[in-house]
Design a protein around this nucleic acid. Structure first.
Lengths: 224, 224
DNA sequence: GCAAAAGTGTTCCAGATACACCCATGT
DNA sequence: ACATGGGTGTATCTGGAACACTTTTGC
C-alpha cells in the first residue's frame, strides 16, 4: 500500500500554510496550531498541510484552515512560496503560503485531527515555532502593514456591522498610534466603501453610534 | 531507468518560470522562448523549467534563465505561484513564477538546448503563448507598473552608467506619458539613489550630459 | 547660426494635518 | 449632574504639478 506513486524524476511535496490574523483583546493576534505529530511534535505552527493532487492551491489553504481550526469564509491572499531545500526534515517540501484576515467577532475555533490545539497569540508573545514559520509570519506581518497604507484591507477585520469608533480602534491597533477622530472619519467616508444601515448602537453610558456596513464585503480595493 | 522515484502519496511537479522585461527600441519588451518539444511545440513560452530536488527556488529560476537565454546577474523577484490542476496536460505542475528586469544594453541572448529560439517581444505584439503564460505575463506587468510608483525598481533597467535624459526616457516608456524635465530631475535626485561619476557623455549635436551611476546597484528601495 | 538635448527655480494648488466644542446616553 | 464616547468644520502646512529660458555642442 506504500509508495505506489512513482515518477521518472524526484518530485518535492507541496503544502499550503496560512497566517491568520485577527484583532482580539485590543491586540493584533495570529492563529497557531500545536503539532500533534512529528516532526516538531508539540511545537506551534501555522495551520496548513499537503496539497491534494487534483486540488487548487487556494482550495487547499481553505480546506486545511477549516479542518484544523474550523475557520471558513475569510479573506485569503497568496503571500509567498518558500522552498529552501532543507526547510522540512522529512523530504523536500515547497510551501505556498497565504495570509488571512478574520473579523474580530469570529469565535469558531475547534481543535481537529491534525492539530492538538488551536490558539490565538499576540505577535510579541509567540511560542517557539516549527519549520521556518517564524519567517513566514514576519513576511505576512510586513505585507499586512504595507497594505494598510494603500488598500482597504483593514475592513476585513470588521464584523458585518460596526461603528466608526470601532473601525478607528482597529486602525489604531494596527498602526500602533492614536488617530485624529475628525480626520479619520473624513478619510474613511471619502473612500465610499461603507454605508450607514440606518440603525444606532448603544453600548455604555454615552451617546449611541451610527452603524455601518461594507458596500462590497468581499472586495479589497487599492486606494490613492 | 524510469519511474524510480516513488512516494506514498502523489506529488505534483514543481517548475519555475520567469517573465524577463527590458527596454529596447523605445518599448517595454518581454523575453520569450520557442518551445522545442511537446506540449505546445513551436509555441512561445516564458523561460523556465523543472526544479532540481536539492535546488533553491530562486536558484532554479536563475539557472533556467541562463540555460535558455544566456542571461545572468539580473534583478529577480518572486511574483506568484500558479497551480491550477490542469494548467499542464502532462501532469500536475505547480509553477513558482518570478519576474526579472535587465538593463537595456543587455544583448547576450543565446538559443540553448531546451529552447529552439529566444526573442524579445513588445507587449502588444505577443505571439500565441503556451500554458497559462499569458496570465503570468499580465500579472508580472501589473506588478511592475505598481512598483514603479512606490519603489526604485525602474533603475534596474539602466546600464551601469547613464544620463538623466536616458533615465527619463525609460520612465516615459514605462509610464507611457511624457514627464516634465525639471520635476523629474528634482524627484530623482531627491531619492539620493544615484551619483555623478564626474564625466560627460556627448551624443549628437547638442550639449553633453552628466553621467550618473547607482549608489547601490543591487538594491530596490521602497519610497514615500 | 541653427538645431537639439542639457540644465536650472518659482508659483500654484490640492490633499493631509492640527485642532475644540457640543450631543446623547446611563448611572 | 457628570462621565463617556459620538459627532462635526476650519485654518494651516506641505508636497506635487505647471511652467520658460539659457547653455553647450555638432553640423
Amino acid at each position: 500500500m506504500a509508495h505506489h506513486h512513482c515518477y521518472q524524476y524526484p518530485h518535492p511535496a507541496v503544502t499550503t500554510d496560512v497566517a491568520v490574523f485577527t484583532i482580539r483583546d485590543q491586540q493584533l493576534k495570529l492563529l497557531l496550531v500545536q503539532r500533534a505529530g512529528e516532526p516538531y511534535q508539540g511545537m506551534w505552527a501555522l495551520p496548513g498541510g499537503f496539497l491534494d493532487i487534483d486540488e487548487d492551491l487556494e482550495a487547499c489553504a481553505k480546506r486545511e484552515l477549516e479542518e484544523e481550526t474550523g475557520i471558513r469564509g475569510v479573506y485569503l491572499e497568496q503571500l509567498y512560496t518558500f522552498g529552501a531545500p532543507n526547510r522540512d526534515p522529512r523530504e523536500r517540501i515547497i510551501s505556498v503560503t497565504y495570509y488571512a484576515l478574520v473579523p474580530s467577532d469570529c469565535l469558531q475555533l475547534k481543535a481537529a485531527s491534525d492539530a492538538a490545539d488551536a490558539q490565538w497569540f499576540a505577535l510579541d508573545q509567540m511560542p517557539a515555532l516549527a519549520f521556518d514559520h517564524q519567517q513566514i509570519i514576519a513576511l505576512a506581518h510586513d505585507r499586512l502593514a504595507a497594505k494598510l497604507d494603500y488598500s482597504t484591507i483593514a475592513f476585513q477585520f470588521m464584523p458585518e456591522t460596526f461603528t466608526l469608533g470601532e473601525l478607528q480602534t482597529v486602525y489604531e491597533i494596527l498602526l500602533n498610534e492614536p488617530l485624529d477622530k475628525r480626520n479619520f472619519r473624513k478619510k474613511i467616508l471619502a473612500l465610499k466603501q461603507i454605508e450607514e444601515i440606518g440603525e444606532l448602537r448603544r453600548t455604555g453610558n454615552h451617546r449611541p453610534a451610527r452603524v455601518y456596513q461594507l458596500k462590497n464585503p468581499e472586495r479589497v480595493d487599492i486606494i490613492k
